[in-house]
């Protein structure tokens, strides 16, 4: 027979694997897409190597945030002390892994799209590179919101104090909260990324529309994010009613 502690440790290992494994998918795709578009822009503007390389690296660092969050949750799962915790913690750990891992997939891809179009845009309009990189940072920052909600739910699941006895209903609602926030985070991340990417490339075409474009992008992203917020509300309800 396995003891409670062994079950919790096993669940922590599994949650850590799910978290960092799934989170790596999106961040890597986004960064690769950015690098590809930067190469494309360099092929016809080789003398802009400094600007394009700088924008590419900054954009990739922002897109990497989702992957770093996955890594942080898996390190917290692996290294936090587990003695004397109730058995229900095992279910919470698996939920935390799903919440962080799945929600990072969309946000990594989404944060990569504006970074890629910013590299292209600098190739098109080198004189507004400052505006383009500021808009790119805002756009990809907002595109990451759902990964941050996933991170919030994962932290709640990790550090919530749980009742000692194990019954099926709280156990399933812990895992369910993780899955709810995780899947809910995929779509809004990619959608907001598309909105931000198109805004950046539109400013590159017509730089005087910068402030109008920023406002429209933010309003559109706020509406896109509403499905992610539904997931956040349901996940919070599931976690906090235990």
């Amino acid at each position: 027979m396995m003891t409670d502690l062994e079950w919790i440790k096993a669940a922590a290992m599994m949650g850590a694997g799910i978290s960092v494994g799934l989170a790596a998918i999106g961040a890597a795709i986004g960064e690769g897409y950015t690098a590809g578009k930067a190469n494309e822009a360099l092929s016809y503007r080789p003398h802009l190597i400094g600007d394009i390389l700088k924008t590419m690296l900054v954009g990739q660092a922002v897109a990497e945030t989702a992957g770093i969050f996955g890594l942080v949750i898996s390190m917290l799962l692996l290294f936090s002390p587990m003695e004397g915790k109730p058995l229900l913690t095992a279910w919470a750990y698996i939920g935390a892994g799903f919440s962080m891992g799945l929600s990072s997939i969309g946000c990594g891809v989404g944060a990569g799209i504006p970074a890629a179009t910013a590299c292209q845009g600098i190739g098109r309009q080198p004189s507004v590179s400052g505006h383009l990189s500021a808009l790119m940072l805002i756009g990809s920052g907002v595109a990451q919101s759902t990964a941050i909600y996933g991170f919030l739910i994962a932290l709640l699941l990790l550090f919530k104090s749980l009742p000692p006895e194990v019954t099926l209903i709280p156990a399933c609602s812990l895992v369910g909260a993780g899955i709810c926030m995780g899947f809910g985070g995929i779509g809004p991340g990619i959608g907001e990324g598309i909105a931000a990417g198109e805004a950046v490339s539109s400013v590159a075409r017509n730089p005087v529309t910068m402030s109008l474009m920023t406002r429209t992008m933010l309003v559109g992203q706020a509406v896109t994010e509403s499905t992610g917020i539904y997931s956040l509300v349901i996940a919070l309800l599931l976690v906090l009613t235990i």
Partner: peptide, 19 residues
């Protein structure tokens, strides 16, 4: 949605630095 903006802006900074 308005309140979630506060959560996302502050957890973004916190998560990156603590992470």
């Amino acid at each position: 949605g308005e309140l979630a903006k506060v959560v996302s802006i502050s957890f973004r900074l916190f998560g990156n630095i603590m992470g």
